[in-house]
Write a protein that binds this DNA or RNA. Structure first.
Length: 159
DNA sequence: GCCAACGTTGGC
DNA sequence: GCCAACGTTGGC
């Protein structure tokens, strides 16, 4: 099992929205590096749902991959801002995964707090110039964040 | 293939 | 709203 961090703007679609709908397409990713990470995701992988452009920005909850990468539906939708005229139905350019809500962090974890934890020094999110909306997270970092967020760090209980 | 111009992200 | 840091585009 692998671990990931997914950014989302809560004004658009935050963890509470995911919790309400249960499962959602994680679409609209339009960066090749992020897309390639999406394609590495497997069913069962766990994801931290991070609120960007929020006050304060931070980790809000945990989701699970319930469907591996498949063609992003919005790239073919002319009415969507994510429409991509270069995409061909037989040769889609972008990918999405389906994410299910697992649990909200009892304690929302602001970016500031993440920075203060030396165990999280390796977290890609905290590295300068990282704007990726999809990125891998190490298991130790993942557990650390669960714990700091007020959850038991044995994520096996999510199964 | 270079690189300037432009667009986007996202914290502050 | 500012702006640093990146990514993308497109002329050459």
């Amino acid at each position: 099992m692998k671990f990931w961090l997914l950014k989302s703007e809560p004004d658009v679609f935050g963890y509470p929205d995911l919790a309400r709908v249960g499962v959602e397409h994680w679409n609209g990713v339009r960066n090749y590096q992020a897309r390639n990470f999406l394609r590495q995701m497997e069913v069962g992988d766990l994801c931290l749902i991070y609120h960007s452009n929020a006050r304060p920005p931070g980790v809000a909850g945990v989701g699970r991959v319930v469907k591996a990468a498949h063609p992003d539906n919005l790239e073919f939708d002319v009415s969507s801002p994510y429409f991509d005229a270069r995409s061909r139905p037989g040769e889609p350019r972008w990918s999405m995964v389906d994410i299910a809500a697992v649990v909200a962090l009892p304690n929302y974890l602001p970016l500031d707090t993440l920075r203060q934890r030396s165990e999280l020094g390796g977290l890609r999110l905290l590295q300068k110039g990282t704007r990726l909306s999809v990125m891998p997270v190490g298991e130790a970092e993942f557990r650390c964040i669960l714990k700091a967020g007020g959850l038991n760090d044995s994520y096996g209980s999510f199964a």
